[in-house]
C-alpha cells in the first residue's frame, strides 16, 4: 500500500439554514478557496476529485451536477461522485491514489438539509415495500435503537445527557460549530421528550454545510504538510437493512471496519454519532476507554448531511497535524440506525 495522508481540510460554517441554492455552490466556493489556498495549490494541481451528496436532500434529480461549477471544472477534471456521505468519497479517492494513477485528490461533500423536512426525507432510505410506506421518521427510528439500549442497560438517559453536555462544551472552541455552550445534564434531562426516549439534546441539529479534504501520496504529502495525518487504514462495511433482524445495540459493521483498518489504540476519536446514544454505542463497540472523544463537539453540535462524516476525518486529521494527537480514529456513518460504517485511522510521524 502507498502512504497516503490527509493534508488539507476546510469546512463551511455549520448553520441551521443558508440562503443559497441546494447545489452547494455558495458553500463550496469559499471552502475550495480556503483548502487550496492554505496548501498553495491551484485547481489544476488536483488530479482526482470525488464528492458525496444526495438528490433527496436537494429535492431534485442530478443535484450534484451543478456543484462542479464551484470548481470551475474546465479544462475537464478526473472526477467521481458517491450518493453517500463524502467520507465514502474519501474512501474512493484513497483507493484511486492506491492504484498509483494519481497522487493528489480533493474530496468534498455538501448538503442543504434545511431545504426539506429532514426527518421525513430520511424515511426514503427505508425498505420501500414494508417499512417506508408507514413513514417512520429518522428520529423515531433512532428512538427505537436508543430504547433498546436503555432497556438492556447498555446506556442511561443520564449518560446520554452527559454526551450532549460534553459535546456542547467542546464545541465552544470550534468556530464552525452550530451549537455550543455550557449546559448541565440536570437541566437537559428536565426538558420534555421529542420522541420518547429521545430529547432534543439527544438529536443532532439540522445543519446546512459543506466540507473538503485534500489527500496526498507520500512525498507529495510531505511537501504540502509539516505534519501529515497518515492514513494507516481505512475500511467500511454495511449491516443488514432489516431493522428488526439486527441487534440495534451493537454495530458489527463498525467493529468489522475497525478491524479491517487495523484499529488498535488511539489518542482521539471523532465519531459520527447523530444521536447521543449512538456515541455510547460506538464507544462500547470500539472499546474506546480513556480516549478523547469528539474534541470538535461532533455532529451533535453541527450535522451537515453528506459532509458530516468527511468532517470527522478532517477534524481527526487536524488533531494530528496540530500535534495534539499522534494517533486518531475518524468514523462516519450512513443509513438508518448506524447501518453502514466507515473507520479511518491516522497517525502523525515525527
Amino acid at each position: 500500500m502507498r502512504d497516503v495522508a490527509v493534508v488539507g481540510f476546510a469546512q463551511a460554517p455549520a448553520v441551521r439554514e443558508t440562503h443559497g441554492t441546494t447545489n452547494g455552490v455558495e458553500m463550496l466556493v469559499p471552502v475550495f478557496h480556503e483548502v487550496l489556498g492554505n496548501l498553495g495549490l491551484a485547481k489544476s494541481d488536483i488530479e482526482f476529485w470525488c464528492s458525496g451528496s444526495s438528490d433527496y436532500i436537494a429535492g431534485r434529480a442530478f443535484s450534484f451536477i451543478a456543484a462542479v461549477d464551484a470548481i470551475g471544472a474546465f479544462p475537464p477534471i478526473n472526477e467521481s461522485h458517491v450518493e453517500a456521505d463524502a467520507a465514502w468519497a474519501c474512501y474512493e479517492a484513497w483507493v484511486k491514489i492506491q492504484t498509483g494513477e494519481v497522487d493528489l485528490a480533493l474530496v468534498y461533500g455538501f448538503g442543504k438539509s434545511s431545504a426539506g423536512k429532514l426527518r421525513r426525507v430520511m424515511t426514503m432510505q427505508l425498505d420501500p415495500y414494508t417499512v417506508g410506506p408507514l413513514w417512520p421518521d429518522s428520529v423515531s427510528v433512532a428512538g427505537l435503537q436508543a430504547r433498546a439500549g436503555l432497556d438492556q442497560g447498555k446506556w442511561t438517559e443520564q449518560q446520554m445527557a452527559d454526551v450532549a453536555v460534553r459535546s456542547r462544551a467542546d464545541a465552544k472552541s470550534n468556530p464552525r460549530a452550530q451549537l455550543k455552550g455550557d449546559y448541565s445534564a440536570e437541566d437537559l434531562l428536565a426538558e420534555p421528550y421529542l420522541a420518547d426516549p429521545l430529547r432534543k439534546h439527544d438529536c443532532a441539529p439540522i445543519t446546512d454545510g459543506a466540507a473538503a479534504v485534500v489527500l496526498a501520496a507520500s512525498d507529495r504529502a510531505r511537501e504540502l504538510s509539516e505534519r501529515p495525518a497518515w492514513i494507516t487504514g481505512i475500511a467500511h462495511r454495511v449491516d443488514s437493512a432489516n431493522l428488526g433482524g439486527r441487534d440495534l445495540t451493537t454495530s458489527p459493521s463498525t467493529v468489522g471496519a475497525a478491524r479491517d483498518a487495523g484499529f488498535d489504540k488511539v489518542d482521539v476519536a471523532e465519531l459520527h454519532a447523530p444521536f447521543t446514544h449512538q456515541e455510547l454505542l460506538l464507544r462500547q463497540e470500539l472499546g474506546l476507554n480513556g480516549t478523547r472523544i469528539n474534541p470538535s463537539g461532533g455532529v451533535l453540535c453541527g450535522n451537515p448531511m453528506f459532509s458530516a462524516g468527511l468532517i470527522r476525518i478532517g477534524e481527526a486529521a487536524r488533531q494530528i497535524s496540530s500535534g495534539q494527537a499522534d494517533r486518531a480514529l475518524a468514523h462516519a456513518t450512513s443509513g438508518p440506525a448506524l447501518q453502514h460504517n466507515l473507520v479511518c485511522l491516522m497517525e502523525g510521524r515525527d
Binding site: 410506506p133 408507514l134 423515531s140 430504547r147 432497556d151 420522541a195
Partner: peptide, 24 residues
C-alpha cells in the same frame, strides 16, 4: 421489542393521533 413515542404524527403514518412506533 422496543418502541418510540410520536407526539405529532406526520402525513402518511398509520395513525393521525399520537402513537408509538414499535419493533414487534
Amino acid at each position: 421489542q422496543t418502541w418510540a413515542w410520536v407526539p405529532e404524527p406526520d402525513e402518511g403514518q398509520p395513525l393521525t393521533h399520537p402513537f408509538a412506533w414499535a419493533l414487534i
